[in-house]
């Protein structure tokens, strides 16, 4: 309940500051295309201890085999739904990567998805999180096209709201993958659309930050806290723009893999935790 109070205070403070900002800046829209999405339609504040709310979240279990061993990225973890790897406690969703032998893998972790439970086109999707750190640690808050079963990756589309390399604790990436443009050179002629945002005098593993997108028919804006760091529009895409249909959300903490340049090293500290304060969706 502490979080609830905090949120109320936040709202009040935010309103005050917004008023201040409006007066001082006139609140003039710049040239960004802004999706106005202030109507909260889905939220998980993670205020009930135990397993995550099964009405919102399901799990991907295992190592992706036989169809997609290493989850298509040479990842090294075995995903479980055990409390050792995923639990709600004290107002936070805690996803923990452990170094342990399990199911033939050397690491365990968890991957939550709203597939079949919450899927939506357009809106504002955001999560407040504190990220883990260390070589080979790869947390992500991302989305996949809900038609992925009939329109396999990358055709279904992928929106990476937050991707982060544990060995680069000041940087987060926002990315789009679509037909013909994705992070796999064997499948796609063009690279995915991506933008790195770097914190100055701060890092993502020492405090909470809000990672989000504002997604409308004409554009997807990527933001961290109050900084909108990149907008992608259909004109940016080297292939078809597929971000015009329902997507579902994923939250996961991978260990190793192509994106993070390989496995953890001897200096990587385990366990590592991804803390999620809330996930909220507005339209």
């Amino acid at each position: 309940m502490k979080t609830m109070k905090m949120n109320n205070i936040m709202k009040i403070v935010s309103c005050l500051l917004l008023i201040l900002v409006c007066f001082s800046s006139g609140c003039s829209d710049d040239e960004q295309i802004v999706a106005s999405a202030d109507n909260l339609i889905m939220q998980d504040e993670f205020n009930v201890d135990g397993a995550p709310n099964s009405e919102i979240w399901g799990f991907d279990i295992g190592n992706g085999c036989p169809n997609l061993c290493g989850w298509g990225n040479n990842e090294l973890q075995y995903y479980t739904d055990r409390p050792e790897n995923v639990v709600v406690n004290n107002g936070f969703l805690i996803i923990t990567a452990q170094e342990e032998s399990f199911g033939g893998a050397s690491y365990t972790s968890a991957r939550l998805t709203t597939k079949g439970k919450f899927e939506q086109a357009y809106g504002r999707f955001e999560a407040r999180m504190r990220l883990p750190y260390g070589q080979g640690i790869w947390p992500a808050f991302w989305m996949l096209g809900a038609d992925i079963n009939t329109s396999p990756w990358p055709d279904a589309g992928e929106i990476d709201i937050m991707e982060y390399r544990g060995q680069e604790p000041t940087k987060t990436l926002g990315s789009l993958h679509g037909p013909g443009y994705c992070g796999d050179e064997e499948i796609c002629d063009e690279p995915n659309l991506t933008k790195t945002y770097e914190l100055r005098n701060d890092r993502f593993d020492t405090g909470f930050h809000v990672f989000g997108i504002e997604w409308g028919p004409e554009a997807i804006n990527f933001y961290v806290d109050d900084v909108l760091f990149r907008q992608f529009t259909p004109a940016d895409a080297p292939g078809p723009w597929v971000f015009n249909k329902p997507f579902y959300m994923l939250l996961n903490l991978a260990v190793g893999g192509s994106f993070v340049g390989g496995p953890p090293n001897s200096e990587t500290v385990f366990p590592q935790t991804l803390l999620v304060d809330y996930v909220r969706v507005y339209n």
Binding site: M6, I9, M10, K11, V13, S14, C15, L16, L17, L18, V21, S25, C27, V34, R124, E126, R128, G207, F208, H209, V210, G212, E214, Y223, D225, D226, L228, R280
Partner: peptide, 16 residues
């Protein structure tokens, strides 16, 4: 400044 929900704790402490 669309993201009004993310005002951080420091702000609250400052106001407090």
């Amino acid at each position: 400044m669309k993201n009004i929900k993310s005002m951080n704790l420091k702000t609250i402490i400052l106001v407090a």
